[in-house]
Design a protein around this nucleic acid. Structure first.
Length: 828
DNA sequence: GCTGTGTGGTAGC
DNA sequence: TATCGCTACCACACAGC
């Protein structure tokens, strides 16, 4: 382990840049020294920057911060970069690091958690406003006025924590993903690929398939650890062992620095085991926003160097720069370019180190990268296949891309304890062993492995380089959560599936895609596995099972998707209490055509509001859920056999809403409800009322006046006097409900007009401002029921109505919820 | 031979 | 107190024709 990370001097070429090269050869203290030097340089360049800026702009800033040394901690507004500029322009000294011995006079921060607060106890900690307001007033304001006092973060943490523990919380999915590193990694990867494809298409860039490239595989050294350590500012990453994790026990370490690695700590290890190996290990938090920001600068830097024809995105912190080969491509030139790239990233990101592997194939560049790490680079530029093989032979099987734990195990089971590439190469000279290998790991895998033994790229890497646009094109869409999933009843599962479908459906919609196949994937507690797994709220040992369903048509309809998921869950017949993870996948995606997009012409109905469309208007109707591309006659397609059953039996049986109640029931509201719902409400009301008692004071002691007499006022059920609102000239909820029903009926074919929707949402928002949640509830419920009546139809309008309901009205409901503290769940 | 489905493996920190 | 175990893609075995 330890040996690996010290670059092999015979192969590595990191000799060119004096300060960097020396650091590689003398170890961790060397890095510290290097960074110290770099910081001195930074200070000098800050002074130069100030002089240059002031000269160019012909201004001279007052030296407000003269003699002060300021460090910026965590996320701030303005950003750390802007503050940096402001501080140095006004004569201050900006510190990038906060190591124990650094004399810092002030720390800028927006918020501090409790632990930070205590570790910064001896510093003057102020909000960014101290800088900006001092500048605005032209004098240094007393820092005490901007002192950070409240520990606002804590409150937020508690709420988030509660949400994540309970998968039935309406905000669970979003708040969970907000903290999931794997979700972020996947999301970032997608965004980078998406951006890449867009750039490629818009640049009309001709990527010649025959172009020969030198590949620069560029990768941050322990990315999360570097960034979090810098944000935290407490420890020197070059001397203190640091790891990034959420927890303190059975929690994954996602990234650790090279000091920690020297103790045997590695990524993926649980914190408890890591602490046994390295008791001094410091655990730091994730800083997802900052990772993203630094990554942006990273990609910017790679482009700014100007030597790459393409920069292929591999992940948040990893990319391949492709430089066309010319006649003067020599080792010397490549060395220079590596230094240049590393310096560009270092400067633009203000101090982050990347390593580079540089070679003639994607594979060799990846292997060279291992040699270059950490904080260095390595070039593998060979003239003969023999040299190439000799180079590959230095690595282990597990170093090869695509050879993970499982494949490695299979190879060992077949051939005994072999780990090195050279050993396998020897074995494969016998055809007998080749067929053994194929049997163990499959023919494709075996073929790819043999290609790698030769130092060559496999087909996939080749297609990535030759046809990047299609390589990076998305072909499926999925979501899964295998943490904190605990259900009691099938109702829980249904509710969760609806939310999960909604989440994925929104992505489908946003990408303007249709799906033809849905797969539900479940993680089921394995036979004999403990009900409470060792990892808190984890999934433990599970069996993965999945079930796919091919839909009758390419669809984008939320309703069909959600029902199909519930059906699939029943087919898999896993008891809700055994479910430890749940996932949803859309396959066989097709682009939604222009006709099915939202650009479809809409009729404006104002004068004659909500009246039935006339004949000629109906002709513009196009079906939304049918792909217009012809189907391949060969492919057998069938509607889900259970789908109809499900639609028949489930659709009408769901209660559209579940909610807690306001203190007093509005009689007008009640009278509009069906009898059974009235009973349900009444029976739960007393309980709900008790639960709400603490809220009562706050709610009812609200002053009753203060409203300017610009419009009619009227009393509402709780005794408040509020302005009379109206929608389409109507003010009674009953009348408005009737209008809504007519509106839906009249526009179910072509969809509602955007302007009308605006007006309606406005009206709801005004009601929300008056905290009249029950009226909002009633209106939306009416609308929802009416839309449901048309559910069996298949029209553009229905689809638009559903979309409106989910995307526009739910937010209003949520807003209401936070105002009045309703526990309102939209049940579709 | 083909197609479709369920499962398993891998990568990023 | 704990803790945030995702997601896209490829490949294969098998079933059914």
């Amino acid at each position: 382990m330890n040996k690996e990370k010290v670059p092999d001097r015979t192969v590595s070429l990191e000799t060119a840049e004096p300060d960097m090269a020396s650091s590689s050869s003398i170890g961790y203290l060397g890095y510290a020294e290097y960074f110290h030097n770099k910081e001195l340089q930074q200070l000098e360049s800050d002074v130069q920057y100030r002089e240059k800026y002031q000269k160019e702009k012909g201004v001279s800033h007052p030296t407000l911060f003269q003699g002060l040394t300021i460090y910026v901690n965590g996320r701030t507004d303005p950003t750390r970069f802007e503050l940096h500029k402001l501080i140095i322009l006004h004569g201050g000294t900006f510190k990038h690091y906060l190591s124990g011995k650094t004399a810092v006079t002030h720390i800028i921060a927006s918020e501090l958690n409790a632990s930070k607060k205590s570790s910064f106890a001896n510093y003057k900690i102020v909000g960014p406003g101290w800088i900006t307001e001092s500048i605005a007033r032209g004098k240094l304001l007393p820092w005490q006025d901007f002192r950070i006092v409240n520990v606002s973060v804590l409150q937020g943490k508690i709420t988030d924590f509660a949400t994540i523990r309970n998968c039935m919380d309406p905000n669970f999915i979003h708040s969970y993903f907000k903290s999931s590193r794997l979700h972020h990694l996947s999301n970032w990867k997608f965004q980078l690929r998406d951006q890449f494809v867009q750039d490629l298409l818009s640049s009309r860039g001709e990527i010649s398939p025959n172009q020969k490239y030198v590949f620069f595989h560029v990768d941050f050294d322990c990315f999360f650890a570097q960034v979090s350590a810098k944000i935290d500012g407490t420890y020197d990453i070059h001397t203190v062992p640091i790891a990034i994790s959420h927890g303190i026990n059975n929690s994954d370490i996602s990234s650790c620095n090279y000091v920690a690695r020297s103790f045997g700590v590695h990524n993926g290890m649980w914190v408890s085991s890591a602490l046994k190996l390295c008791p001094a290990l410091k655990i730091l938090d994730y800083e997802f926003d900052e990772y993203e920001a630094i990554s942006n600068l990273f990609y910017q830097a790679l482009k700014s160097v100007g030597i790459f024809k393409m920069v292929l995105p591999l992940s948040i912190d990893e990319a391949i720069g492709c430089m066309p080969v010319t006649s003067d491509t020599t080792q010397e030139l490549l060395t220079q370019k590596c230094i240049q790239v590393r310096a560009a990233v270092f400067d633009l990101t203000q101090g982050y180190s990347v390593s580079i592997g540089c070679a003639s194939s994607v594979l060799l560049a990846r292997l060279a990268l291992r040699k270059g790490k950490p904080n260095g680079f390595s070039i593998s530029w060979f003239s003969t296949p023999l040299e190439r093989r000799a180079f590959v032979d230095q690595f282990k099987l597990k170093d090869l891309p695509g050879i993970g734990y499982s494949t490695d195990q299979k190879i060992q089971e077949t051939f005994g304890e072999i780990h090195s590439i050279s050993a396998l190469r020897g074995l494969l000279e016998s055809p007998n062993n080749v067929s053994k290998l194929i049997k163990a790991i499959g023919s494709k895998n075996a073929k790819r492995l043999q290609t790698y033994l030769d130092g060559q790229d496999d087909d996939e890497s080749i297609s990535m380089v030759k046809d990047p646009a299609s390589y990076f094109q998305k072909k499926s869409l999925s979501v899964e959560i295998n943490y904190a999933i605990r259900f009691k009843t099938i109702d829980d599962v249904d509710t969760f599936l609806e939310r999960l479908s909604l989440y994925l459906w929104e992505k489908l919609k946003d990408s303007n895609l249709l799906t033809r196949q849905i797969t539900l994937k479940l993680m089921k507690r394995a036979q004999g596995a403990p009900v409470d797994p060792p990892k808190f709220m984890g999934m433990g040992k599970c069996d993965a099972i999945s079930k796919a369903s091919t839909l009758g048509s390419n669809t984008q309809k939320y309703g069909s998707i959600a029902s199909e998921c519930k059906t699939l869950f029943r087919i898999l017949s896993v008891p809700p209490a055994e479910v430890r993870g749940i996932g949803l996948q859309f396959h066989r995606l097709t682009a939604a055509t222009q006709a099915s997009g939202q650009k479809l012409e809409q009729r404006r109905i104002t004068t004659d509001i909500f009246k039935k469309a006339n004949r000629s208007d109906d002709e513009v109707v196009r079906r939304v859920d049918e792909d217009t591309t012809p189907r391949t006659p060969k492919s057998t397609t069938y509607a889900s056999p259970v789908k109809n059953y499900w639609d028949r039996h489930l659709k009408r049986s769901v209660t559209p809403f579940r909610y807690d109640f306001p203190d007093e029931l509005d009689p007008e509201f009640m009278s509009n409800l069906p009898k059974d719902v009235q009973e349900e409400i009444t029976s739960h009301h007393s309980v709900a009322k008790r639960a709400k008692r603490t809220l009562r004071t706050e709610l009812f002691e609200e002053p009753k006046k203060q409203i300017k007499q610009t419009q009619d006022l009227h009393y509402i059920h709780d005794g408040r006097l509020v302005p009379q609102l109206s929608f389409q000239g109507l003010s009674s909820a009953k009348q408005i409900c009737r209008t809504l029903i007519d509106w839906v009926d009249a526009t179910i074919d072509v969809g509602p007009h955007e302007k009308d929707l605006e007006l309606f949402v406005n009206h709801l928002n005004k009601l929300a401002d008056q905290r009249r949640s029950h009226i909002i509830l009633q209106l939306i419920k009416t609308l929802k029921n009416k839309i449901d009546d048309h559910y069996d139809g298949n029209s553009e309008g229905l689809e638009q109505w559903e979309y409106f309901l989910i995307r526009r009205l739910i937010p209003v409901l949520n807003k209401t919820k936070s105002d009045v503290n309703f526990n309102l769940v939209f049940d579709l």
